[in-house]
Design a protein around this nucleic acid. Structure first.
Lengths: 224, 224
DNA sequence: ACTGTTCCTCAAATGGCTCTCAACGCAACC
DNA sequence: GGTTGCGTTGAGAGCCATTTGAGGAACAGT
């Protein structure tokens, strides 16, 4: 059973989300702000976080930052108010795993939680299969048709993240935040170097391809 | 299924609205005034509110204000008794999304509710379906019958904006402001170039067409 | 501690994708 | 028919991305 932590200061909404999630087979854990969320996380394993941005004491961004700094890599679904997104491209820059805009369509939420569950499951399984290519988190290694492709740690994390949601664009920011940490001072070009090295290693791979999305980031797409 | 809360003190009208909405695939929730509406909202997820202004106890403005202050951002469609300028201004000031003037044309109501629900859905769906053409915001990709149509970033945002409201005219200014940014110094002709290139890419597309509105801007219309 | 290895980061040169502009042709309105 | 606004095309500028090699931090073994 999946544990979903719902961080929302509005009591009505929080209870609504929790009820709907519970009705659909998730185990929901309510928290009224970021600090309360951290408290829950201390005592309970959590698979996914749903989190409003605007909250008292500790808002969604602060919570995300705190979690990533502490090494949590679980998927975070952010909820934003419509006005806080004035630009179309803003959506890509938010820096979490997924986001929704208020007013929330409850079915949409379920759909997104399901999608993130798949990712969380992949993270938990520690194993990702793309055709004949297998990424094994514990060995930190990739095999193509049984043949081992050695990867450096950073390369592996990067590929694992990109490949955990085929087709989805991850912005440089998202990737850097999760793999290098929120407050990393690392040169953004480092990411490009790793991508380059990954492409070199999987040059003739029949299963997937790392595609550049100019001005935004990268995505992994399957070769058909 | 969409939940539409109908707030109207006149019993005849309320039942008429609810019946029509139910017949057209919406789940309608009746309420006789603002206080009753809040009561419903406490126990039920609501997607859209249709709301008369003149009501006993708590009128439409008060309801809207209360909801917005409580952080609700769901679309509110206001019904005003007469086409009074004061009402309009007041309505927009307290944060309604759309309004209609009595006597209500029932088809117009359906059309507006459809537009509002479509808008609410698109914001979160980030996925536009126009017949066999699909625009996926998260992948920033367009596919026609499953075949990928490569687009430049600007082209994609442009098409996505135009297609997010079929038939609606977007002025050059609106488009430039949103996609190029308010303080962009770009030559207005650039927009024409992008439109031209989009038309070229979707030359034989059976689903839609970008139509020039001379002197104003552009709109996307469906081919039927 | 010294040395070597492993892994990651940085810098700089190169490359090539997008976007823009300019120029001309064309269509629509008066 | 003139004028104004729009369409189309090609080429260039600018910037973003890629690549490579060198340097450096972390770590382990001696």
């Amino acid at each position: 059973m999946f544990n979903v932590l719902v961080v929302e200061d509005d009591k009505e909404l929080r209870e609504l989300y929790c009820t709907v999630l519970s009705e659909n087979g998730y185990n929901s854990l309510p928290a009224s702000d970021g600090e309360a969320a951290l408290e829950v996380l201390d005592h309970q394993y959590v698979d996914i976080i749903i989190c409003d941005i605007m909250m008292p004491h500790m808002d969604g961004f602060a919570l995300t930052r705190a979690l990533r700094e502490a090494g949590f890599t679980l998927p975070i679904l952010m909820i934003t108010a419509k006005d806080s997104m004035n630009d179309k491209q803003e959506g890509f820059r938010v820096g979490t795993d997924d986001y929704m805009v208020k007013p929330i369509d409850i079915r949409e939420m379920l759909w997104r939680v399901a999608a993130l569950s798949r990712r969380a499951k992949i993270i938990n399984d520690r194993r990702l299969v793309l055709g004949s290519t297998v990424l094994d988190y514990d060995c930190m290694s990739a095999t193509v048709s049984g043949i081992d492709v050695p990867l450096y740690q950073k390369e592996f994390f990067l590929l694992y993240k990109l490949a955990s949601s085929i087709g989805r664009i991850f912005t440089r920011r998202q990737i850097m935040d999760e793999i290098w940490g929120m407050d990393s001072e690392a040169d953004p070009h480092t990411l490009e170097v790793h991508v380059s090295r990954l492409r070199e290693r999987f040059r003739d791979n029949p299963d997937f391809e790392i595609v550049t999305v100019r001005g935004l980031g990268y995505k992994v797409v399957g070769k058909s």
